[in-house]
């Protein structure tokens, strides 16, 4: 049982990554592909946070009543995740605007029909 307790967060986040990857590989609707990319991002962000996790740890914020520093989780992955979230949002926003433009040109979001250039 301890196996599950040790690994459950990793299993969860990589499941998200793999589901997202599956969507990107299989689906042909551009918006669905972007949703897949978003899922991958979410999984990766969860992974980064869980790398810094300590069991029973608290948020790395000191308060005046004085929490013990030893019990705090690693702050660096949290800072990295904040950056990664913003980058993910940027990519998704740009992807959606590309989708809007493609829809204007082709009247469809089906990637099988949008093949003027060779893949």
């Amino acid at each position: 049982m301890s196996f599950l307790a040790d690994y459950v967060h990793y299993i969860g986040c990589f499941a998200l990554v793999l589901i997202g990857l599956y969507i990107v590989l299989v689906k042909t609707n551009l918006v669905k592909v972007i949703i897949g990319i978003n899922l991958i991002d979410t999984g990766v962000n969860l992974f980064l946070v869980s790398v810094g996790y300590i069991r029973m740890g608290t948020a790395p914020i000191f308060s005046e009543d004085g929490a013990a520093g030893k019990q705090m989780v690693d702050p660096v992955p949290q800072a990295l995740v904040l950056t990664a979230i913003v980058i993910g949002v940027s990519v998704v926003a740009l992807g959606l605007s590309v989708a809007i433009r493609l829809y204007e040109h082709y009247g469809t979001l089906d990637l099988r029909k949008i093949r003027e250039l060779k893949w």
Partner: peptide
């Protein structure tokens, strides 16, 4: 007192 904030703005300010 928020360590994440100090990491984000000073230690890893260039990232931000």
């Amino acid at each position: 007192s928020n360590v994440v904030a100090s990491v984000l703005v000073t230690y890893r300010g260039l990232d931000t």
